[in-house]
Nucleic acid binder design. Structure first.
Length: 675
RNA sequence: GGCGAUGUAGCUCAGUCGGUAGAGCGGGGGUCUCAUAAGCCCUGUGUCGGCGGUUCGAGUCCGCCCAUCGCCA
């Protein structure tokens, strides 16, 4: 069975962020899983380099578009290298092989009679590279970019997409391979189906307003529409139209023996699940097996956006905790297919519980005890009937099933369960007591063998997700093997060499001190693009906030950073915060919370709820009637399930961090602006 | 507005053919000590979004409503 996995090709105008990284890492994890099973796997990623945005940047800089592309493509390539992404090929749409393939595909569409020329004019957004009907504009501007569109007239080449409505619906019904839904997850398949069922219009597939693209064969002055260009990369990388199509026949499916899976973010699902199969049908080419769509990472439960400045770039976390820790976190934290929230706090909690306490500590105790007992060697007796073996076999089965049904987080869960079983086994057998009471017995050998052998299997299961860590664990167990060299036979019980060298080593994943990590000013906002918190909405978690806190606590923070270390802001930055005088009209302590106080405040005519961590210093009675200063335009945050809409200002007393509310002269009317 | 989902413990989620709810993490308390302040033990009275219906019995089926999200218009 051959398997061909692809990521989307990434537009080089964009700096890579966690979204690109996630798609690529998930694909890498899946390909590593299938390689480990001994299958013939190919993994493609690359960059999309044509289009108006690049053209404009180039013009602005006075350079050729290819120079812009050449400058940015390596940032993706290098990032994948850093994250141990093992792609077989990296395609750039500016490469000759791509142009050749796209030209060949278009020749086939033409031959099928599916291309025709028609006039077209309308409002055109440069950012979207798309026309908008008048009614879709907001105040005459592009709804996505908020920029004024240009009125453009074009004579375009059209593709008879409408012709493929019924064949596409049949595809969604039956799948390209029986039994495998064409789109994963099901809810996305429903979306695509209803989109197509609503009726398909023919698609404009050429552009005349742009020069930076692939010349449209037979239509001088036209370049190929971005998606017809980009999607085709999956085939041009295999050599479509090159004269040597051996890779096409090896990986592009024409039967049960080949599987093609496109991984995509949900935002570009339609292009992959509608346009792409339609192009292929027209060209008389086989269809991919499945389009797998994953959710988005949100930052602290909010959409990531450049304007909010909360785009996650996890460089600092990777610097501090390693590539494998991030890979593990991304795979296990997101329920695959759904959206998930990324936060540094959640990362540290998971790092400590799964990697430091779980994998790392279990490895440490097992290796140290065995090395001490057997003079720096692995046990010399094996054991083929015990609960660790049964746990390992169950874990392999669960892990296998999880990967095969795209439930990546459950594959990670299987590893955690196995590690827990090994840890529990060690605890139950108490080998540290046995060795004191009975000395080194055959039974002691067997106990240690089981623990170490269980860890060896766990490391193999970990390999697709965190290959570096997996290889390191194997090396420490005295069973060294590169992650890429692990094969199906390694999943079977009994691979640990007997009497092999074994030496304790420094902690694999040293426990992280969350408090210390966040207390360091340079690391307060390590993963976001903006380094200066411009508005309170983007304020970092206060250093003393509990690690489990779900959102920034809008409470006075005892920031240890000296004033001199705080970056200067402009007055404009300051005025982003809407400070108002408010009167507290009700206040009660949040049950189950030590320090949270739920208050109703009146700002002018408006009443709203604010939750703040001041219950250690004030009772509800002391607060009611009091006038305070609040940040009125803070994004809402949920604290202990209560939505808080603002932040009460208070001083943080030195040492204890105890809050002391800012006093306002009682005569100042509620709602008054503070500046 | 149309279509589709989702709403279960502080967080992330399981709950198969309907029999009055579970796991991991986090929190709190205790304890051992081989191990990375790790391990182990104890600790959850949750209106299973709301209302109504079917049923001997509903988180689980049906209807309506509310909230959130996605796709489309």
């Amino acid at each position: 069975m051959s398997r061909y996995f692809t990521t989307p090709i990434y537009y080089v105008n964009d700096r890579p962020h966690i979204g690109h990284l996630y798609t690529t890492l998930v694909t890498d994890t899946l390909t590593r899983f299938h390689r480990l099973q001994g299958e013939d796997v190919r993994f493609l990623t690359g960059t999309d380099e044509h289009g108006q945005k690049i053209e404009k940047v180039a013009k602005k800089e006075g350079v050729a578009p290819i120079d812009v592309a050449d400058r940015h493509a390596p940032t993706f390539r290098d990032l994948w290298k850093r994250f141990e992404v093992a792609n077989d090929d990296f395609i750039r749409t500016t490469e000759p092989r791509h142009r050749v393939g796209v030209t060949e595909l278009i020749r086939r569409l033409e031959a099928a009679g599916d291309l025709y020329v028609a006039g077209h004019e309308g409002w055109y957004c440069v950012g979207c590279e798309a026309f908008y009907p008048e009614k879709d504009l907001e105040d005459g501007k592009c709804p996505t970019h908020g920029t004024p569109p240009e009125w453009q007239k074009e004579e375009n080449v059209f593709f008879r997409l409408s012709k493929y409505q019924e064949p596409l619906l049949a595809l969604y019904e039956k799948g390209s391979v029986p039994g495998i839904p064409f789109v994963f997850p099901e809810t996305r398949l429903n979306e695509v189906r209803s989109f197509v069922a609503a009726g398909l219009k023919d698609l404009s597939v050429s552009r005349t307003a742009i020069q930076w693209g692939i010349p449209f064969p037979g239509h001088p002055g036209h370049v190929v529409y971005v998606w017809l260009d980009a999607l085709t990369n999956y085939l041009t990388a295999l050599g479509l139209g090159s004269g040597d199509e051996s890779l096409v026949s090896r990986y592009w499916p024409a039967g049960d023996e080949r599987r093609v899976v496109h991984l995509v973010g949900k935002d570009i699902l339609r292009f992959h699940a509608v346009y792409w199969p339609a192009f292929l049908m027209s060209a008389g080419l086989p269809l991919p097996t499945q389009v797998v769509s994953h959710g988005f990472w949100l930052k602290d439960a909010r959409k990531m956006s450049k304007s909010v400045g909360n785009v996650v770039r996890p460089d600092a976390l990777v610097d501090a905790f390693g590539v494998d820790a991030l890979r593990w976190h991304l795979v296990s934290e997101m329920s695959f297919g759904q959206d998930a929230s990324f936060s540094d706090e959640a990362f540290l909690v998971r790092y400590n519980s799964d990697l430091a306490n779980g994998l790392g500590n279990t490895l440490s105790r097992a290796v140290r005890m065995a090395a001490d007992a057997f003079g720096g060697k692995t046990p010399s007796e094996r054991c083929d009937d015990n609960e660790v073996k049964r746990a390992a076999e169950a874990a392999v089965a669960a892990w296998d099933a999880a990967f095969r049904s795209c439930r990546l987080h459950e594959a990670a869960e299987a590893v955690r369960v196995l590690l827990g079983a090994i840890d529990g086994y060690i605890t139950a057998k108490e080998p540290w007591k046995k060795v004191k009471a009975e000395g080194v017995t055959p039974a002691l050998h067997r106990v240690h063998h089981n623990a170490l052998e269980g860890l060896r299997v766990a490391a193999c299961l970990l390999a697709p997700i965190a290959p570096g860590a997996a290889a390191e664990v194997l090396a420490r167990l005295g069973a060294p093997k590169a992650a890429e060299a692990i094969g199906p036979s390694d999943l079977a019980w009994g691979g640990l060499p007997l009497g092999a060298p074994l030496a304790p080593a420094a902690p694999l994943f040293p426990r992280a001190d969350a408090k210390a990590y966040f207390a360091e000013p340079s690391k307060e906002k390590p993963v976001t693009e903006e380094t200066k918190p411009a508005a309170p909405a983007a304020a970092p978690i206060p250093p003393e906030a509990p690690a489990a806190s779900p959102a920034p606590v809008p409470a006075p923070a005892a920031t240890p950073a000296a004033p001199a270390e705080t970056p200067r802001i402009t007055v404009d930055d300051f005025f982003k915060a809407d400070l108002r005088v408010a009167e507290i009209v009700a206040a009660e302590k949040v049950e189950k919370s030590k320090k949270l106080m739920k208050m109703t405040v009146r700002i002018g005519e408006e009443e709203r709820t604010i939750v703040a961590g001041i219950a250690t210093a004030y009772t509800g009675d002391q607060l009611v009637g009091r006038k305070v200063v609040v940040v009125a335009n803070l994004l809402p945050a949920k604290l202990m399930g209560i939505e808080s809409n603002g932040m009460v200002l208070a001083a943080s007393l030195p040492g204890t961090g105890e809050p002391s509310l800012l006093a306002v002269d009682p005569s100042v009317p509620s709602g008054t602006k503070v500046k």
